[in-house]
Each structure stands twice: as C-alpha cells, then as structure tokens.
Amino acid sequence: MSENGYEEFNGSEAAEPSSEVYRRRRIVAALIALLAILLLIWGLTWVFGKIGGSNDDNASSAASTSESSEPFDSFSARPSESDSASADASESADPSDSASPSDEASASESADPSASASAEATDTPEATDSATPSESAEPTQTPEPTPTEAQPLACGASNMNVVLSASQPSYGKGQNPSLALTYTNTSQNPCDIPADAQNVVINITSGSAQVYNTATCQVSPAAVAQLAPGQVGQTAFTWDRKLNSLGCNNLRDIQPGYYWATATVNGVTSEPARIIISG
C-alpha cells in the first residue's frame, strides 16, 4: 500500500483471466482441433483416392489387355471362294499395292552411299578386265584315254564248246563219211586257236581199237587263229575210210562196222559221234 492508500502494482503479479476468457480459449482450441481433424480426414481421403484411382486404372488396363488377348479375338472368318476371288481381284486392281515412285525414290535415297560406291567400283572396266581370262592363256585339254583292247586268251574248256557230228546215220559201199566240226567261243572276250595241225585233231576208234587220227599224217582241218566273243567256227572233214594206225605208209581199207569219232580243238574234246559203215 502506498501512502495514499492505494495498492501498488509492480507488474510482476498479473491479474487472473476471467472465466469468459477461458471459455473463449477453449472454443478456439476446439475449433483448431476440429479443423486439424478435418484436414487430416481430407488428406487421408485424397491419398486413398489416388491409390484407389491407380488400382482402378491398372484393373481397367488389365481388363482391356485380357479382352484384347482373347483367343481368335482378331481372327477374321474364312472368306468364301467368291469373297476370296473378289478380294484377289480388288487387290490386283488396287494401285496402292504397287510401290509409288516416291517410295522408290525414298528407298533409293535412303540406301547406303557406300554400297552404291562399291557397286560403281565393281562396274568399272578395270574390274571386268581383271576378271576375264587373258587371251594368251590356252585351255588345257585333257587327253582322252586310249581304249584298251581286250587281250585275247587261249581258247579252252572254260570259254569254248566243241561239237562233232556225222552228216548221216550210216554210209554204204563207196560212201565216205563226212564230219562237221563246230567250235564256239562262249565267253565275252576273244580267244585264240593257233593255226597248228596239232590243235585240231580228228580221232576215230572202233571199240578199243585205234583206227584213224589226223595228227598221224599231219592232215588237219583248217582252223581260225582267233574267235571273237560268241563266234562259231566251222570245219568239214571227210574220212576216206582208211586205217592209218599202222603208219602213213601202211594205209589199209576199213571193214564195215561201228566207229566212233571225236574232235579235239586246242585241248577241248567233243562228245563221240557214231559212224556206221554198212558196206
């Protein structure tokens, strides 16, 4: 208290606010809290809305993808023969299918200049001249092989067949037996028969007795020197009904009876041919 009876106010003690002030402060605080709650709710709603929107977009895109990936979704029905014919006619008549001059020009302009340069380089006369053979070079001719002639082998049992036959079954008085001799080359190559009296021999027997042999007196039918493949040689021989088994200087006439003749050509002997002398 001052001397005048007034209570001094030093500023350190503040007057307590009234209940009205407290009420207003509570209202303001409540409004701020309510506003904060509303802002929070709005923020959460916005965030969830964005998330939900993105999910909806993904779902719609997935749905569109699944719809577009449906099997045979873009498959067109098979055209009938008349439709395909009309389609072919329209395609062949459509001038848009052929390349336009501008497309060809753009394609030629877009071509690699280095490729055109290399093409020009290959078209130069120098490259062509180097690729052509020189005129001085002579073609090498391969000599044709000389055909080798088949060397003839000796006619023998493996490549020759010999047959002797009488001209008739029996011969009467005054008839000389005539014999036909054939020899055939049965191989695919020529074969040789040397022209020697000892290589073509006619032998005549009667039972076990020797009667006549052409080699005894060097009387031999003519023989070819070579037989071609498949060639048949023929020789005729006439027996004068003489016996020369006692020597060429002791010839005798034979008696009627049965005789057997064989022919041997180059070592190959024929089957016996029967000769009947009846008179």
Results as ranks from 00 to 15, higher is better:
D94R: 11
C248D: 04
L39Y: 02
V28W: 03
P152Y: 09
T140W: 08
Q188W: 09
P152M: 10
S106M: 12
G156M: 04
E16W: 06
G172T: 13
A119M: 11
A115P: 00
N244C: 03
S114H: 01
S100R: 06
N199G: 00
T45E: 02
P152G: 07
F72W: 05
D240H: 03
S68I: 06
D240A: 07
D57T: 10
A111Y: 05
R23E: 13
N189G: 06
T132C: 00
L243D: 11
T140D: 08
A30I: 09
Q218G: 13
N244I: 10
V219T: 12
A85F: 02
S114L: 15
E104K: 13
F237D: 03
G156L: 02
A273H: 05
F72V: 09
S80N: 07
E81V: 07
C191R: 04
G207T: 07
E8V: 10
R78L: 07
P139R: 05
S158E: 14
K242C: 00
V28M: 08
E7C: 03
A15N: 06
S61E: 13
S74L: 15
L153D: 11
Q255K: 12
S2A: 13
S64M: 08
A261S: 06
A209Q: 12
A228L: 13
V211D: 01
N189A: 14
C217S: 03
E126C: 02
V268N: 02
P221Q: 09
A59P: 00
R25P: 00
G257F: 07
A63P: 00
G279I: 06
P101W: 12
P101K: 07
T65N: 05
S76Q: 13
S165Q: 11
Q255N: 08
S206V: 03
Q151T: 14
D73P: 01
L44Q: 00
F237V: 15
S100G: 14
N244L: 04
N161I: 03
N55E: 04
G5F: 07
Q218D: 14
N250D: 09
A117V: 05
V224L: 03
T238V: 15
S106Q: 13
P133K: 11
A150D: 05
A99I: 11
Y6Q: 12
T235M: 12
M160D: 03
E67L: 11
A180F: 06
E144G: 04
R23Y: 10
A111S: 15
S80H: 01
S136F: 12
A85L: 04
S167D: 15
